[in-house]
Structures are given as structure tokens and as C-alpha cells.
């Protein structure tokens, strides 16, 4: 495996609040490898943004270390800044200027010559499909167009790692889907992407590997498939016509080797198995033989929310309403 491009060791940061110090980041260890899309999933206030801000030199850690492309974020912030691109939650495009002017200025701030900056801007405008609006003032852009410009600004200087903080927050589903395509394009260009999100679907769809964060700690890490496999297994939910045969059902399921766990109350039966699609036919046959009548049957494969539930005892959707700052 190649050397990781982002490494953090026991990273910690506190904030003081009226009720005493809050541990925003509480011992984060991470490794991100070149070329991967690394997802950082967690509810609002989990400490994702704070971690990102430390990695991008915008905030200082209270303890622990972090290196980007071999440079320490607190000792060599200048070198770190040259190696990273950063797209914050707010975006960062300068609204009174055109997209192209934004890109050229960004390139110049990274020491490109005027010609280099112009060429690179033109290249990105083509590659990321900004052509139709690149020469309009950014004030006139839609949310989706602004986001695409923000991402282009982030990779203007060909950084080793691009940090995206909640890139699709506030976008409608169509623009979100567009941006996902855009981000996958970055992978094809060989850009390492580190993105935070509180959307399960986003983390699942985009990440090659992901870490789940809660209360300043990483509670799980791996590929989406690995993580989902670790937890629940698939769930088969069965609606029974009546509950008269419940004892027989319990005995039958107890004998089946593939049944990991089940709950049965009244007419609702939930069975947890390793691979639902493989065992469903057998279950149906069994119920048929025993003359147990089934009203409905559904199969649910685990989501990252089940992973989160398993690790924290809450679901990510629950935490959504609780809200909270960063």
C-alpha cells in the first residue's frame, strides 16, 4: 500500500463553553490514502468540521499531530496549504467576480503565472462543465452552479488532497446527484478527496472508505461494505395472518442455522440473517410446508444508519432533529 497522504494521531481539540470545556475532537486517528475518496460521516456537531479545520490549518489542535503529504499542520502550515484544496461549507466563491476571474485569482495566489492560471482555468471550465456560466458574475449563479465553481476553485492548483466540507448541504436532489458525478470525476483525475457529510446515502455512494464520527470520536472505520457487514446482517420482516402458530414458528426458526436472531410479537416477525436474498426461498418453503400464512414479507439490507445505531445506540436520523452547531 502507498504511504497515506493524511495521517492524524490522537488529535484533540476543546472548546470552552458556559457549561465548561467541550471536547469537540477527542482523540482522532485517521489515515487517508492517495487516490481514494474518504468519507467522514456523522451528525451535526460530531466534530467533523473541527477536524477538517485542523487538517486545513484553519484551526489549531490542542494536542496530537496531523500531517498532510508529510508536512505537519501546525509546524509547516505554509507547505500544507500548498498541498491541499479546501472547499468550506460556505463555498468560497467571490460573488462580485466571474467564475473565470475567481479561478485565475485562485491560481495566482498559488503562485501560478498569469498564463498558467488562465490555461488551468480554461481546462477546469471544460472538465467540470462550467462553460455556460464561467464568464457571468457569480452573483447570478444557482446554488448548484456555485458549488461546481467552489469545487473547481478547490482543485485549481492540483492539490494532493481536496477537502470538501458538507459539499451537498442545501442542494436539491438533482444538483446533489450532479455534484456526486463531479466528485467521482475527481477520483478519475487522481485527486484524493476527503469529504464530510451527514448524509448516509452520500457517504455510502461516494466513499471508498469512511469513518463514522460521533461526539468527537471515530466509532467505526472501513469500506461501506465492510462496515455494513460487521453489523446487523439483513433483516427479513414478515407480517403473519394471525399469531396462533407463534410457538411453532419460534421452534422452527431456532432450528435453522442461518437465523442469527429473531423477534416475534403479535403478527410481526423480524428475522436477522447473514444474507437475506439467499435464505428467503427456504423460509418461504418452510412456512408453506407448515401451513403458516404470510401476509407480507420484506427484505432490508443494512444501511450505514444501522452501523451508526449499532455503534452509538442512536440512529443518525434521530440526531438530525436534535441539531447543534459544529
Amino acid at each position: 500500500m502507498p504511504d497515506p497522504v493524511v495521517v492524524t494521531k490522537d488529535l484533540k481539540k476543546y472548546f470552552s463553553s458556559r457549561s465548561g470545556p467541550v471536547q469537540a475532537v477527542d482523540g482522532v486517528d485517521l489515515e487517508v490514502f492517495p487516490g481514494e475518496i474518504f468519507g467522514f460521516l456523522g451528525p451535526n456537531g460530531a466534530g467533523k468540521t473541527t477536524t477538517l479545520r485542523i487538517l486545513t490549518t484553519l484551526a489549531k489542535a490542542d494536542s496530537g499531530t496531523a500531517t498532510i503529504a508529510g508536512f505537519d499542520v501546525s509546524r509547516e502550515p505554509g507547505k500544507v496549504r500548498r498541498n491541499i484544496g479546501y472547499v468550506g461549507q460556505a463555498g468560497g466563491a467571490d460573488r462580485p467576480a466571474t467564475g473565470r476571474e475567481n479561478l485565475i485569482l485562485q491560481g495566482r495566489l498559488y503562485d501560478m503565472t498569469p498564463q498558467q492560471a488562465k490555461d488551468r482555468a480554461a481546462e477546469l471550465i471544460t472538465a467540470l462543465d462550467l462553460g455556460e456560466f464561467a464568464d457571468r458574475i457569480a452573483h447570478t449563479y444557482s446554488g448548484g452552479q456555485l458549488r461546481r465553481l467552489d469545487v473547481a476553485l478547490g482543485i485549481m492548483h492540483r492539490p494532493k488532497v481536496l477537502f470538501l466540507d458538507e459539499p451537498t448541504t442545501g442542494l436539491d436532489p438533482q444538483n446533489r446527484a450532479n455534484l456526486w458525478v463531479q466528485i467521482e470525476k475527481l477520483r478519475d483525475m487522481g485527486v484524493t478527496v476527503f469529504l464530510t457529510t451527514h448524509y448516509l446515502e452520500e457517504a455510502d455512494a461516494l466513499s471508498d472508505r469512511l469513518a463514522i464520527m460521533d461526539h468527537g470520536r471515530i466509532v467505526a472505520e472501513g469500506t461501506p461494505v465492510e462496515l455494513k457487514k460487521q453489523v446487523a446482517g439483513d433483516t427479513i420482516s414478515v407480517g403473519l395472518r394471525d399469531d396462533s402458530r407463534n410457538e411453532a414458528i419460534a421452534t422452527l426458526l431456532g432450528q435453522r442455522p442461518y437465523v442469527r436472531d429473531f423477534t416475534l410479537d403479535d403478527c410481526r416477525l423480524r428475522i436477522v440473517v447473514e444474507e437475506g436474498s439467499k435464505v428467503m426461498p427456504d423460509l418461504l418453503r418452510l412456512f408453506d410446508q407448515e401451513g403458516i400464512e404470510i401476509a407480507t414479507i420484506t427484505l432490508a439490507v443494512p444501511t450505514l444508519d444501522d452501523v451508526f445505531l449499532n455503534k452509538t445506540g442512536r440512529t443518525l436520523r434521530d440526531t438530525e432533529s436534535a441539531g447543534g452547531g459544529q
Binding site: I84, Y86, L109, Y110
Partner: peptide, 16 residues
């Protein structure tokens, strides 16, 4: 306005 739109933060993340 520029802080709100992330412009200042974008500059701060560059070697500027």
C-alpha cells in the same frame, strides 16, 4: 458578507 460566503476562509486555506 465575504466571511459568510466563505471567501475569507478560502483565502486563508491558500498560502496567501
Amino acid at each position: 458578507d465575504e466571511i459568510r460566503n466563505g471567501v475569507i476562509e478560502r483565502f486563508r486555506a491558500t498560502p496567501t
